[in-house]
Each structure stands twice: as C-alpha cells, then as structure tokens.
Computed example of a mutant assay.
Amino acid sequence: MDDVRTAIRKAAMTETTRTELPLVQSGAAAGGCCGGGSCGCGHGASAATSTASGAATAEFLVDGMTCGHCVSSVTEELSEIAGVEQVSVDLRPDGASRVTVASSAPLAAQDVRAAVEDAGYRLSTGA
C-alpha cells in the first residue's frame, strides 16, 4: 500500500498544470490590492489620438492596481463605456499602471474617470 501512495505522490508532483499570466509583480503598492480612492480632477488622463478611420486611442495612468484581479476589474468597467473596443494594461504594482483604451471615437474624460472609480481605483495625479 505504501508503494501505491508513493507512486501517486510522485505522479502528482510531476504532473503540474500552470497558467502563466502576462503580469509582472515586484512588490505591493501602497494601499494594497483593490485599493483605490477617488480623484475628481481628471489627473492621469493623456491626450487621445485619432486615426483616419475615426478610431481613437487614449492612455491613462491608474493608481492602486497591484494584481490580475485589479486589471480585470478596471478592464471590465472601461469595456462597458460605449464605443470601447479594446483595453490593455501595463501593470505597475509599485506605481501608476498605464491603461490604453482603443475606441471607435474619442472618450469623455469624465466617463473614463467614473469607470476607473467604479472599479475601485483612481486616475493618477502624477505623470
């Protein structure tokens, strides 16, 4: 019976399923995971750029994001804004994460701010 248990343990240790996430974490940001706050002044928003087809891309800096759950929450809220086609996040657990939003038309800054705050985060006040 011990031989069977040993064989099962060895098999379990060699058969590992991993899901690699495209995130790099180097520490916890102040405020921890799912932290946030409220910034009503619009800091962190960058100028939007438009393409010839009318599509727009805008970048924003978001404070308080530290993990994949944070990325999912912000992506989900931003994706609900009318016209948003794609959201990508460059996660920076020790600082402001860069969020790039592609949309069919330029987005209103207050809509982006509201979506980020609904997710539990805030637009960065730093550049």
Rank of each mutant, 00 (worst) to 15 (best):
P22Q: 10
D3P: 00
R122T: 08
V62G: 04
A29D: 06
E20I: 14
R5E: 15
V4Y: 08
V112M: 03
A29F: 12
Q25V: 15
V62W: 07
T75V: 05
A48H: 04
G126S: 13
A105G: 05
A82K: 14
H43Q: 08
M13W: 00
V87W: 09
G35E: 01
R98V: 09
A105M: 03
S38L: 10
A58D: 04
G120D: 03
C39E: 15
H69C: 13
H69M: 13
V71I: 13
R113K: 12
C33G: 02
G31Q: 11
L23N: 03
V89I: 14
A29Q: 02
G42I: 00
M1I: 13
R5H: 04
V71P: 00
C34E: 12
C70I: 09
C34G: 15
S46I: 02
A45W: 05
E20A: 14
A102Q: 15
A30L: 14
P106M: 08
V71G: 04
M1R: 13
E15L: 06
T66W: 03
E20S: 15
D2M: 06
V74L: 08
G40C: 04
D63N: 06
G95I: 01
G27T: 05
G42Y: 00
G35T: 14
Y121K: 04
A11S: 12
G27W: 01
V112F: 01
G83C: 07
D111L: 03
G36F: 00
P22Y: 01
G64N: 11
D118M: 05
H43C: 15
L91V: 02
A108Q: 11
A109I: 05
S103K: 06
C70W: 04
E117P: 00
L23W: 10
T100G: 06
E80S: 09
A30I: 13
H69D: 13
A52L: 09
G126W: 11
A12R: 15
V4A: 11
P106A: 03
S26E: 05
A28K: 10
A96W: 06
T57H: 06
A119P: 04
C67F: 03
G36Q: 06
L61T: 00
G54Y: 02
V116E: 07
R98F: 03
E15N: 06
L123P: 05
A30Y: 10
D94C: 09
G126L: 12
G35K: 08
L61F: 10
D94P: 04
D111A: 10
C33W: 09
S124R: 05
E76R: 14
E117K: 03
A12D: 14
G95L: 08
H69Y: 15
L78G: 11
E59L: 07
S97P: 01
